[in-house]
Simulated scan of single mutants.
Amino acid sequence: MASSVPVLLLLCLAAVASAQLSSTFYDTSCPNALSTIKSAVTAAVNKENRMGASLLRLHFHDCFVQGCDASVLLNDTATFTGEQTALPNAGSIRGFGVIDSIKAQVEAICPQTVSCADILAVAARDSVVALGGPSWTVPLGRRDSTTASLSLANSDLPPPFFNLSQLVTAFSNKGLSTTEMVTLSGAHTIGQAQCKNFRDHIYNDTDINAAFATSLKANCPRPTGSGDANLAPLDTTTPYTFDNAYYKNLLNQKGLLHSDQELFNGGSTDNTVRNFASNSASFGSAFAAAMVKMGNLSPLTGSQGQIRLTCSKVN
């Protein structure tokens, strides 16, 4: 019996940790918070379809560095260098203006109540829904960090040149399984990537459809530095619809990034890709569950951190 006590204790601690976030967190303190965020996200995505992918990516890039604490939104200060100039972020993460606008609208109805971290989590969900994807209930109650980490952003965010083993490790380090890694990669069914991030794949890799590679080369010339910022859709089939076409593309060797095609390249994740490619409902439910789990990465709660008045700076 004695040996079961630590196990029981761990289970209790796990329950306490998961209970720190609650879907009803703002029901009393700011009952119109979620509807305000949803309206703003829907308007932003209707204005520019690409914004849905950008807001989803902001949440991902936030959670993988220090946990889901809105650290990615902090501008550089005299005391720390933020995450926005890290290699995976520089010149590519966007949507800050939309988040600032949402924060201002929420502040107007509920001063210093709703965190920037929660806004990112809800905006990610609402972006997916706005583009035809699944919905999920977002646990709330995150608080905002008072610092950010350039070094962690450089080390913890998986770059587009990672191979399968490196991707598995990067997600495992965050407590996410290999299947959840494949699932969350499905976010690339929307959005665009810069030429500098897929140039090596279209010129040097063999696991790519030849006609697909050729179609991309005109907009992504060979000399490094030429056309680096030129964009191509991560999913050429339905670039502005959140669906399972990303996985169908992988079956045809039409993954835009090296890291995308690594998910279907004779390795351990091939069957998961096949499943999601053939079963849209399976992907949708798996994605919703994986997003909730990712959104639970090391949140600040209770008296930790703060509720920032402006998302780009500490109070």
Rank of each mutant, 00 (worst) to 15 (best):
T238Y: 04
T77D: 07
K293P: 07
A33E: 11
G67I: 08
K254F: 00
H258T: 13
P88R: 03
D62P: 13
A17W: 12
Q20N: 12
L140Q: 10
G284R: 14
A289W: 09
D76W: 12
L55D: 03
N89L: 03
L140C: 05
V72M: 04
I93E: 04
G267R: 02
A213E: 02
L152S: 12
Q192Y: 15
M291A: 10
A286S: 14
P139D: 06
A289E: 15
S268W: 05
T169C: 09
L34P: 08
A232D: 04
A187Q: 13
A232H: 06
T137E: 14
T272I: 14
A288N: 09
T183P: 04
V41P: 06
T137C: 00
F171Y: 10
N230Q: 10
A153F: 01
A286P: 14
L21I: 01
H188Y: 11
N315Y: 10
F242T: 07
L120F: 01
H188V: 06
I37W: 07
F212Y: 08
D126N: 02
S101V: 12
C116T: 06
P299D: 00
A78E: 15
L234T: 12
T24P: 06
L73S: 02
T28C: 01
Q194N: 07
S259W: 12
P88K: 06
K103E: 14
S54V: 11
N49F: 11
K254P: 05
P160K: 09
F287T: 07
V138K: 02
S298Y: 12
V292I: 12
S149F: 04
A281N: 11
Q192R: 10
N173S: 06
D144I: 01
F162A: 15
A90P: 05
T81Y: 10
L184V: 00
A170S: 09
G52W: 04
T137A: 05
T238L: 00
L256K: 06
H201S: 03
F198I: 03
S285Y: 14
P221E: 07
L297K: 01
M51S: 04
F276T: 00
T113Q: 02
I37E: 00
Q112H: 08
S3P: 04
G95N: 00
Q84C: 05
D118G: 09
A148H: 03
V72K: 00
L184F: 06
E180D: 02
C110I: 00
S185T: 04
S54I: 08
P158H: 12
S282M: 15
A288I: 15
S4P: 03
